[in-house]
Design a protein around this nucleic acid. Structure first.
Length: 333
DNA sequence: AAACCATTCAACCGCCGACTG
DNA sequence: GCAGTCGGCGGTTGAATGGTT
């Protein structure tokens, strides 16, 4: 007896998701949480395969996702991790908060591979292309494709190295160990980096919804790494807060403890265009994620008027509510 | 302006491992 | 131990978009 398909494919829709479908899925997940994916389409009223729903959620709709190109720091981290882990994209993605395996995989195939080849580095082995000698450009003990999963000792070492990579600030373009890499212009299509203090997101410590998701990251002297880490966690953290909270220049820096405090999920209302592209597709993350979600929940029967705006709940300027995600969104620049 | 080519990335597909009865 | 189910993973596809001729 063969394997049963993940769903009854008859009559199921395929291809790009519509705003309406997104709305239904988000509504369902927010109301019920992530449960049995097979049951989700039926319960959410979607003509989609459960697998498709899961993919859509994890790769696109999840609120803690960063969008936009990878920063130079992230890119270098991906390269380093790939050298150690190989094509285990989900493992690599787990070290880059807010990034999905799919996104990293795509970025690897479309950008990084080319860059490495240009530099004469085999993206598969991370060895120089011209000289297939065992010369190791980085601190790689052996090419990833030789790496043996069954060798627990090696695997453990790799995990330790990966953790070390993450915890240290040595992964920066300035500290690359390979001379060739030092010359790389890793500016990914002109996506600027930002300082943490530039991120204008309201601080909020009161949320029961995602206490477990609260993140504390020690401040770093490295601008690149800090900016990256900050956005990765804060992208899910658009939240309403008191005006006093918002008055501080840096919304995340705990002035007393000098730690980065990221607010939890909480969705304020504010003004925004929630249909903002030519196809009337919902711009979920383009202005204010949280507000979009409010809309999803409150106004699921929305008629799709592209000019419709919601009333302001909090009178603060919109900028204070913009999700940091958009800072990295290439379109925003 | 049209045709062609290259690139990007969301989505799909098939396989695998974990889990359960 | 086996079969069935499910979620997750990595490879691949193809529509959309951008660039070039």
């Amino acid at each position: 007896m063969g394997r049963q398909p993940c769903c009854d494919k008859v009559g199921l829709k395929k291809g790009p998701w519509t705003a309406e479908e997104d709305k239904k899925l988000i509504n369902f997940i927010l109301t019920n949480g992530q449960c049995c994916w097979r049951a989700v389409p039926k319960l959410a009223g979607l003509l989609r395969c459960g697998k498709s729903c899961r993919l859509r959620w994890t790769n696109y709709l999840r609120p803690d996702l960063k969008r936009g190109l990878l920063s130079p720091y992230e890119e270098q981290l991906v390269i380093d991790l790939h050298a150690k882990l190989g094509n285990r994209w989900s493992k690599i993605a787990s070290h880059l908060p807010g990034r999905t395996d799919n996104e990293i995989k795509n970025h690897w195939n479309t950008h990084i591979k080319k860059k490495l080849r240009k530099l004469g580095i085999d993206p598969l082995t991370h060895n120089p292309l011209s000289t297939p000698t065992p010369q190791q450009p980085q601190q790689i003990s052996k090419p990833p494709h030789i790496m043996s999963e069954e060798n627990d000792h090696d695997h453990q070492n790799i995990e330790e190295e990966v953790i070390a990579l993450e915890s240290s600030n040595t992964i920066s373009l300035k500290n690359m160990t390979t001379p060739e890499l030092e010359t790389i212009d890793f500016c990914t299509d002109d996506v600027p980096l930002i300082d943490p203090c530039e991120i204008l997101v309201p601080n909020n410590s009161s949320s029961a919804a995602a206490a477990a998701a609260a993140t504390t990251i020690l401040p770093s002297t490295s601008t690149t790494s800090t900016a990256t880490t900050t956005t990765s966690s804060s992208s899910a953290c658009c939240s309403s807060s008191s005006s006093s909270d918002r008055s501080s220049k840096n919304k995340f820096l705990d002035q007393d403890h000098h730690e980065w405090q990221f607010p939890d999920f909480e969705w304020p209302g504010t003004t925004f265009d929630y249909y903002n592209d030519d196809n009337n597709n919902m711009g979920l993350w383009d202005y204010d994620l949280s507000s979009s979600w409010d809309l999803m929940i409150i106004s699921a029967d929305h008629d799709g008027d592209s000019t419709k705006k919601l009333d302001i709940v909090d009178p603060d300027p919109l900028i204070n509510y913009q999700c940091p995600r958009m800072v990295f969104d290439q379109d925003s620049w």
